[in-house]
Simulated scan of single mutants.
Amino acid sequence: MIDYIIVSQRWRSSISNCRTYRSAEIGNTEHRLVVANMRLRLQAQRSQPRPTKIDVSRLSDQEIRSKYAIDVSNHFDALLPFESSEDAWISFKKNVLESATANIGRAKRAKKAWVQFDTLDVIEQRRKARLLGDMPTYRRLNGVRNKLIQRDKKLFVERKAIELEGAAMKGDVGSLYKHLRDLSSDKAPSVASVVSADGQPLSDEAAQVSRWKDHFSSLLHADTVAQTDQELACLAASTQEVPSNEPETSFTTAEIHSALKRLTNNKAAGVCRVSAELLKYAGPAMLLWLQMLLSVVWRTEWVPKDWRLGIILPLWKRKGSKSICSNYRGITLLSVPGKLFAMTLLDRCTSILRRKRRVQQAGFMPGRSTVEQIFTMRQLIEKTRENSGGTHTWPS
Rank of each mutant, 00 (worst) to 15 (best):
Q45H: 06
P51C: 01
I149N: 01
L97C: 01
E98L: 11
S321V: 05
V195K: 01
V34Q: 01
P337C: 05
Y138L: 05
V195R: 01
L313H: 15
W316G: 02
E63K: 02
V209F: 14
T370C: 13
A206E: 11
N327M: 09
I70L: 14
Q360D: 11
Q62H: 05
R22V: 00
F156P: 03
R348H: 07
N245D: 11
S84A: 06
K178V: 02
V35D: 02
E63H: 10
I324S: 14
P49Y: 07
R145T: 07
E98M: 11
M1G: 14
G199S: 01
E158M: 10
R357P: 00
R50T: 09
V242A: 13
A285F: 02
T137C: 08
F375G: 02
E158Q: 11
L290K: 02
L155I: 04
K112P: 04
E158P: 00
V115R: 12
I2G: 12
D77P: 02
S238F: 04
G283V: 00
A254H: 14
A197N: 14
F364I: 10
N37Y: 10
L232P: 05
D55E: 10
T20I: 08
E248H: 10
K170C: 05
S210G: 12
N28D: 06
R273P: 00
T370E: 03
K153Q: 10
S85I: 01
K261A: 05
M286I: 06
G199T: 00
K356S: 13
S185R: 12
S13Q: 11
T239C: 11
L315F: 15
A276T: 08
A226D: 10
V209H: 15
L260M: 13
M169P: 03
W316L: 11
F375S: 07
I352R: 01
I104P: 01
K213Q: 08
E63I: 03
D71G: 08
D223Q: 13
T384C: 15
S8K: 14
S244R: 06
T224F: 15
L180Y: 12
E163V: 05
S66K: 11
R127E: 02
A167H: 13
I2W: 15
V35F: 03
G390F: 15
G166H: 10
S369L: 08
Y281W: 08
R273M: 06
